[in-house]
């Protein structure tokens, strides 16, 4: 088990090194990092100080290590817009983003898993069909279209909810609903197929043949085994939530990290973009590592192996 956790840690470390390398390479390929990060009209002494801090007068491989040092000591440059430290600029947006993503994530799980399990247990019933239709729709309707349809119905036509801004908790309802629906649909579809696969196994037949009540079969045997693949997909859903936040925050003018990213890309405020990409990447790698370790805990067969690939 220790070996398993250590190998996961190692892989997470390799991924983080690759992310930092990616940002390093992209930054070098796009021109002189000092003017790119500080902006072309930055004062020359600021650019000189930056060159020195990042060791831009040194050979490339020393720069590479200096870049790592800068990243891990949190010195990622200053925002072009107001000259503030980008780490502070990004961190102050985090609570707003969490205010959307955490409730949306809870909705994903609280709706998606029970819906999927229920659909699998009542296969081909009316509710099963409804769940599947919702699940397929959830995939095909992109979040920005769903968001705008919700605005059209609840803000423009009914006038119940505000369509943009962050004035009260009412503003959070539509963005959370948008992100909650998409993820719940995906999770329901996945849970249903995981559950159906488990229900077709011979140990389920054995359990019910030996006279266990059906509820005990479901609770003790089916659910625990279906949990294993479901945990995997939850790890991937975190990535979807982050991407969803980028789009949904932009539609609803919600001042979170996602909107900051889009605005910074449009303004080419590269220090901010770089800080956000690194932060998201490190969060994702960490989350995936936790999922991997959880996976190892839930499924004793997996010790020393990787979790299976996502389907497709």
């Amino acid at each position: 088990m220790l070996h398993y956790v250590l190998s996961r840690l190692l892989r997470a470390a390799v991924s983080i090194v690759m992310v930092v390398t990616f940002v390093f390479v992209v930054l070098r390929m796009s021109g002189d990092p000092a003017t790119v990060i500080m902006g072309a009209d930055a004062p020359p002494e600021a650019i000189d100080a930056f060159r020195k801090a990042w060791g831009l007068d040194q050979p490339l491989w020393i720069q590479y290590f200096a870049f790592f040092e800068a990243v891990f000591s949190g010195e990622l440059g200053r925002s072009m817009r107001d000259g503030r430290d980008v780490v502070a600029v990004v961190l102050e947006r985090v609570p707003s983003t969490l205010a959307l993503t955490v409730p949306a994530f809870l909705i994903n799980i609280a709706v998606g898993i029970p819906a999927g399990v229920y659909a699998a247990l009542h296969r081909n019933s009316l509710i099963d069909r409804c769940v599947m239709v919702m699940a397929v729709t959830g995939f095909a309707v992109p979040s920005f279209i769903l968001a705008m349809l919700l605005v059209l119905i609840f803000s423009v036509n009914l006038g119940w909810l505000p369509s943009a801004g962050q004035d009260s908790w009412l503003n959070a309802i539509l963005p959370i609903a948008t992100m909650g629906f998409g993820g719940a649909a995906l999770l329901a579809r996945f849970t249903r197929s995981a559950m159906l696969e488990v229900l077709g196994q011979s140990y389920i037949r054995t359990a019910s043949a030996k006279g266990l009540p059906w509820s005990a079969v479901v609770w003790r045997h089916a659910l625990q085994n279906a949990a294993i693949p479901t945990i995997t997909i939850i790890g991937f859903m975190l990535g979807g939530l982050v991407a969803g936040a980028v789009v949904v925050e932009s539609v609803f003018s919600w001042p979170g990290v996602g909107r900051l990213l889009v605005v910074s890309v449009a303004n080419r405020d590269l220090a901010v973009v770089q800080a956000i990409v690194l932060m998201i990447a490190i969060t994702m790698v960490g989350a995936n590592m936790i999922v991997d370790v959880l996976y190892g805990l839930v499924d004793p067969r997996m010790h020393g192996q990787a979790r299976p690939a996502r389907r497709g």
Binding site: S15, V242, V246, Q274, I276
Partner: peptide, 24 residues
């Protein structure tokens, strides 16, 4: 395989935004 892991780990939308920011 390490490259595969890397691109599976980060939302593609975010990577794409980063590249668009740097290269126009």
């Amino acid at each position: 395989l390490a490259l595969v892991d890397f691109s599976a780990a980060i939302p593609f939308l975010v990577l794409a935004l980063a590249v668009l920011a740097f290269f126009g």
